Simulated assay, not measured.
Amino acid sequence: MKKFTVARLLVCSTFFVPASAIAQDGFSLELEAGTIYDSQLVVDEIDVEQAEGDVAFRFGADVEYQPVDTDSFELEFGYDFGQSVYLDFDEFNLQSHVADVNASTRIGGARVGARYAFSHFRLGGDGLFDMHTVTPSVSGFVADGLFARAFYTYNDKDFATLDGRDATGNQVGASLFKFFADNAGFVSISGRWEDEDTVDPQFDYSGFVVGADLRVPIAGGRDGPRLQFGVDYRDRDYDSITPSIGEIRTEDRFRGDVELTVPISERFSVEVGYRYTDRNSNLPSADYTENRLNAGILFEL
């Protein structure tokens, strides 16, 4: 019940903002269409994998509306849709719907905010799980060109059929960004601790994730082509014996990716990327290496 109360508070807070603060043009739209080749089809949330490659078409839309945007208060509503369609293994077709509301205010030199999101995922045309997420955060510049953010996240997952995987989770994390090239590029480091408590004890875990990203403008500053590199390492410790292997599950994962974005007009951009994943586990369905290539076009309004 508390998570719905938070959402109502964020929405109702609009009525306490003067009418002069209401934005005249607060809409933004982003559309994406592309192709993916994946050497290993996986659904991490339910430990399902297919050790064969396939090609998928990817479609996405992201709509945001910011009715209030002032120095003292910001309010934003968003909706994000994603759909992958595989040529051969349609049971891995993943559809996502995420609706969220973000509110923030400035206290001194820091931005204090909260986000509520409701997510609905479908796999192979059937419902997979729903998730409610609440994330308070604090962020701000701590030095010239140096931006920091800290957050706490609570989530509640409700699976359509796999009731044993229903879970509540907690995460605490922080990230640090150093901007350069007139803020067109940055280097960042991040980390978070996470814990998930599931109905079936075999899926309970705690762990951490650490990562780093680098964005390099190639030419033209913020509006020109850019390269982005990312790496992260994840480690999880499970609490109970997994019956299928007769022992406590162990797992770690390394992932690296690179993406090139090339604007071709004021509204259109082309994106090409590669991702490598090495996941190590004593659970066979969670032990794999993956190579993923993607290419697509992005429209922004």
Rank of each mutant, 00 (worst) to 15 (best):
Thr153Lys: 04
Lys3Asp: 15
Ser104Pro: 02
Val172Ser: 06
Met1Arg: 10
Leu293Val: 06
Gly108Trp: 13
Ser84Cys: 06
Arg106His: 05
Thr70His: 01
Pro243Glu: 10
Ala219Gly: 04
Gly207Arg: 02
Gly26Asp: 06
Tyr37Phe: 15
Gly26Met: 02
Ile297Gln: 05
Glu76Pro: 02
Ala160Thr: 01
Arg111Glu: 13
Val270Ala: 07
Gly211Cys: 00
Pro217His: 03
Ala56Gln: 05
Arg275Gly: 04
Asn183Leu: 04
Thr133Pro: 09
His97Ile: 05
Gly169Leu: 09
Val187Met: 13
Lys157Val: 08
Asp252Gly: 00
Asn280Ala: 12
Ile264Ala: 09
Phe180Ser: 08
Arg267Leu: 07
Phe147Tyr: 12
Pro243Ala: 14
Val262Thr: 15
Gly185Ala: 12
Arg292Ala: 03
Asp257Ala: 12
Phe15Asp: 07
Val187Thr: 11
Arg236Pro: 11
Phe89Val: 05
Ser281Val: 00
Thr168Asn: 13
Arg249Gly: 03
Leu128Ala: 01
Ser72His: 07
Ala114Val: 15
Glu259Ser: 02
Glu271Met: 08
Glu64Gln: 12
Thr105Trp: 15
Glu266Trp: 00
Tyr233Ser: 02
Ile297His: 12
Asp232Ala: 08
Asp62Ser: 02
Phe59Met: 10
Pro263Arg: 05
Asp80Gln: 10
Tyr205Pro: 04
Asn93Phe: 02
Val17Trp: 01
Tyr65Pro: 05
Val134Tyr: 04
Gly109Lys: 05
Glu247Leu: 11
Arg192His: 06
Gly113Met: 08
Asp158Asn: 04
Pro243Gln: 07
Tyr37Leu: 01
Leu128His: 04
Thr70Phe: 02
Asp71Phe: 14
Gln40Ser: 10
Val68Met: 00
Leu9Tyr: 13
Asn282Ala: 10
Phe159Leu: 06
Tyr238Phe: 14
Gly185Thr: 03
Gly108Asn: 14
Gln171Thr: 15
Asp54Gln: 06
Asp62Asn: 00
Gln24Gly: 03
Ala148Trp: 14
Tyr233Asn: 01
Phe27Arg: 13
Phe186Arg: 02
Ala184Asp: 03
Ile218Trp: 09
Asp144Lys: 13
Glu247Trp: 06
Ala103Cys: 14
Glu64Arg: 12
Arg249Tyr: 01
Asp25Lys: 14
Glu271Leu: 11
Glu49Asn: 14
Asp158Met: 06
Phe81Thr: 07
Gly60Met: 05
Glu91Lys: 09
Phe16Ser: 11
Ala184Arg: 02
Leu146Phe: 15
Phe147Gln: 03
Val55Ser: 02
Arg267Asp: 12
Ala103Leu: 13
Asp239Trp: 10
Glu196Val: 13
Arg249Met: 05
